[in-house]
Design a protein around this nucleic acid. Structure first.
Ligand SMILES: [Mn+2]
Ligand SMILES: [Mn+2]
Length: 197
RNA sequence: ACAU
DNA sequence: CTATGT
């Protein structure tokens, strides 16, 4: 199920007003010091709020605008995992996207996504910071050790192959990229998110 | 408890 | 509500 449509009120930004998408809203507040904005469920609520700026309770938008963001999604419904990476400083351009991993876990997806980004960076001589919202996956990357409880079975042997490949890449390569925890509470959902929650 |  | 992890 897709996320419900929202209306975005921008009180302080390049062009204050009401916007129908986060992308449009974001344009108005990126790089705008002291931006004030907030989302509402209905257009009526948004219109009302626009006339009452004291309703603004959002923090300034000052999340990172340079580097790579990765995210993964695992559906317990379809038992499928996918992950992807985007470039913050190229208007969230999609860098890579992989899916169809049956019988996986969220954390394995988040882990492979980070390593995929690291390998891509090394190949291109990029030293971009890499953002992930997964404490678990960042920990696994830093320790070069995957502590999953998932059992290998007929459904997920490809997943485990790719997991092993990622782990081997980590152990056999060096990198200088910073791996940074995306601060979801302060910055909102990581831009690579699948917005399914 | 915290992070997905 | 379920599950994956530190
Ligand atoms: Mn995530
Ligand atoms: Mn997500």
């Amino acid at each position: 199920m897709r996320k419900q449509k929202k209306y975005y009120v921008v009180w302080e930004g390049k062009n204050p007003g009401i916007y129908e998408t986060w992308d449009e809203c974001k344009k108005q507040i990126e790089g705008y010091k002291g931006a004030k904005y907030k989302s509402f469920k209905t257009l009526d609520q948004a219109k009302e709020a626009f006339c009452n700026p004291h309703l603004a309770n959002s923090k300034p938008l000052d999340y990172p605008l340079y580097g790579i963001c990765v995210d993964a999604s695992y559906s317990t419904k379809t038992k499928e995992m996918e992950y992807r990476g985007i470039l913050l400083h190229e208007k969230n351009k999609l860098l890579f996207s992989q899916g169809g991993y049956k019988n996986a876990t969220n954390n394995i997806g988040e882990f492979i996504a980070i390593v995929h980004a690291l390998a891509l960076c090394k190949k291109n001589n990029w030293n971009y910071p890499i953002y992930s919202d997964s404490k678990t996956a960042i920990s696994w990357v830093n320790k070069k050790k995957v502590n999953t409880k998932l059992k290998l079975n007929e459904e997920n042997h490809i997943l485990f192959e790719h997991l092993t490949r990622a782990l081997n890449w980590l152990k056999e390569n060096t990198y200088n990229n910073k791996i940074i925890k995306w601060n979801t509470e302060k910055w909102g959902e990581i831009p690579a998110d699948y917005n399914r929650k």
